[in-house]
Nucleic acid binder design. Structure first.
Length: 269
DNA sequence: TAGAAATGTTTAG
DNA sequence: TAAACCTTTCTAT
């Protein structure tokens, strides 16, 4: 489930559980053995996310993780379970209260040890991350407003905007009544200011809830309580289902290799 | 048991 | 633009 909110949350959790203590780092699967040996037993300074990237600092060395489409961390307290399956990286430490803590990483696109300059090179190619307090929304606008490319494609481009994935893209465009096919240059400053502010709100809510919920309570079938999975989105993965606002069938199409979802009436071209 | 799909990125052409 | 890659989970046979 990795869009930016997932990584932000992971960074925070891992910092709370592991920072300031030596971490036993292994790679039971074997594909990260050399990297694990570099940082094994060292004190973790902290974990930070930027966009969909995760950076765990051990002095001058940083473990960089990108979950890709289906990478995932699991974890818990006490003694870790026997390693099974393709377990790329495991952390074990004495947690803040003295009890053991552990976390397991499976299926990431990237899991590697980087030097400071290598980390900086990754950061340099990322656009502003709406979850970072001092992110510069204007930097994204300059890219968008100068481009003939569809805004639906620009929002997914990590050099334009860091941390937005397929769900936030579809939902943000719906909430603002914008066709995914509108050229970036047809997005003006006022519209972008509204979209950015909304993204900040939505992604912070994602951090808080641990999942993406974009529907307003009045647009859900059940207005009270925790929204069901069926009720959490306006258009994402709702192909052929009626739009929550106008009842038109939600449409889907491939855009830059990814499934795009939108309502042709609420988001007219 | 096999196959498809999944909130992503990189590389090759 | 297409294909490759990483792994799990759900669905169909």
């Amino acid at each position: 489930m990795p869009e930016g909110h997932t990584l932000f949350r992971l960074a925070r959790e891992q910092t709370t559980q592991f920072a300031g203590r030596p971490v036993h780092v292994t790679s039971p699967q074997g594909r990260f053995t050399a990297g694990a040996a570099l940082v094994d037993g060292r004190v973790l300074d902290g974990v930070r996310s930027y966009g969909k990237h995760l950076f765990a600092r051990f002095g001058g060395d940083t473990v960089h993780v990108h979950l890709g489409l289906y990478g995932a961390f699991t974890g818990g307290t006490g003694t870790p379970p026997p390693a099974r399956g393709a377990l790329r990286m495991r952390w074990v430490a004495d947690g803040p209260d003295g009890a053991g803590v552990w976390t397991d990483l499976r299926g990431p696109t990237a899991c590697e040890v980087l030097t400071r300059p290598e980390v900086d090179a990754i950061l340099a190619r990322l656009g502003p991350d709406p979850l970072r307090p001092r992110a510069d929304a204007g930097r994204a606008l300059r890219r968008i407003a100068a481009s003939r490319t569809a805004v639906g494609a620009l929002l997914m481009d990590q050099t334009v905007l860091a941390g937005v994935g397929n769900v936030y893209r579809a939902e943000l465009l719906f909430r603002h009544g914008i066709s995914p096919f509108r050229p970036g240059r047809a997005v003006d400053e006022a519209l972008w200011a509204r979209m950015w502010a909304d993204l900040v709100t939505l992604m912070r809510a994602g951090v808080r809830l641990g999942r993406i919920v974009t529907t307003r309570p009045e647009d859900r079938s059940r207005r009270r309580g925790v929204p069901t999975r069926e009720d959490a989105h306006y258009v994402y993965r709702r192909t052929g289902e009626p739009c929550r606002i106008c009842g038109t069938d939600v449409r889907t199409e491939m855009m830059v290799g990814r499934n795009l979802y939108w309502c042709p009436v609420c988001q007219p071209s």
